[in-house]
């Protein structure tokens, strides 16, 4: 079966983002970018499915600027077979991404789309669900375990206070949570080999998709700093305040 893995280029998770002085956004010029960590987990899961003989081809997709090629190369080095860059300078929102992916799904006919549950830049947590909605496919979000058998995907999902297991008819969408797996390194030999794997570039317009954002960013600000509270005298005093004042125990 064919697996499509959308990946996003984001500010590296080690970098503390800096709000621009003029409040128009977060500084990205000269900032180290990497693959969204949840997407790495998605790529890893796809590669493991291929290693198990379940997946036959893995197609990595990224939507963004030219440098998103680097992100795709990482996916190829991890084990994806080929890559598609949907080239655009617009910061595409999950709705637009889902529409682009829907168009690519029509072209590629994958049996499974697996992607990160959210991107660590806009923290939207929406693309997988939206793509599933547009396609009318089943969705297994926040997956911590995925098993493919008999034309279905059995997905264990992380929900509030526990784990839920659902069985999805294929084709389906799975979004990866942190505990699904620990992604492998893109090793140097594999990075070298990835340079020779095919990469195709298309524009959203080629796919007949309008990616105009629906949200306007009015401003971006740093969150207010936390202030020091009170010093308590004893353990008993602390417990009493947590109970009666803060009401957290």
């Amino acid at each position: 079966m064919k697996v499509l893995v959308p990946v996003k280029r984001v500010i590296d998770f080690n970098i503390k983002p800096r709000v621009k002085a003029d409040g128009t956004g977060v500084e990205t010029a000269g900032v180290k970018m990497s693959m969204n960590p949840f997407d790495e987990i998605a790529v890893e899961e796809a590669v493991r499915l291929k290693e198990k003989g379940i997946a036959t081809e893995i197609v990595a997709v990224s939507i963004g600027v030219q440098q998103a090629q680097d992100t795709l190369r990482t996916a190829l080095a991890m084990g994806a077979d080929r890559a598609i860059l949907v080239l655009t300078d617009v910061a595409v929102e999950p709705l637009g991404v889902a529409k682009v992916l829907k168009a690519l799904v029509a072209k590629e006919s994958p049996d499974l789309v697996i992607l990160g549950k959210q991107a660590i830049d806009d923290d939207m947590n929406a693309t997988g669900q939206m793509l599933a909605g547009l396609l009318g496919w089943a969705q297994g979000t926040f997956a911590s375990k995925v098993e493919i058998a008999d034309g279905r995907a059995v997905v264990t999902r992380e929900i509030d206070g526990g784990l839920e297991t659902v069985s999805l008819a294929l084709p389906a969408i799975v979004t990866a949570d942190l505990r699904l797996n620990e992604p492998r390194y893109a090793s140097l030999p594999n990075i070298m080999k990835a340079r020779k794997k095919p990469m195709e570039t298309v524009a959203p317009g080629d796919l007949g998709v309008d990616v105009t954002p629906r949200l306007t960013i009015v401003s971006v600000a740093e969150p207010p700093a936390r202030k020091a509270g009170v010093k308590v005298e004893s353990a008993a005093d602390l417990v009493a305040r947590l109970r009666n004042e803060a009401k957290v125990i």
């Binding site: 929102e93 999950p94 709705l95 889902a98 923290d123 939207m124 947590n125 929406a126 693309t127 669900q129 939206m130 793509l131 599933a132 909605g133 547009l134 969705q139 979000t141 926040f142 999902r157 992380e158 929900i159 509030d160 954002p213 629906r214 949200l215």
Partner: peptide
């Protein structure tokens, strides 16, 4: 914001051609 809403609302938003606003 919670596991149920995050699972359901973006899908509903897609059906409505709306970009959701989480959190």
């Amino acid at each position: 914001s919670g596991a149920t809403a995050k699972n359901v609302l973006p899908r509903a938003a897609a059906l409505l051609d709306v970009q959701p606003i989480p959190d």
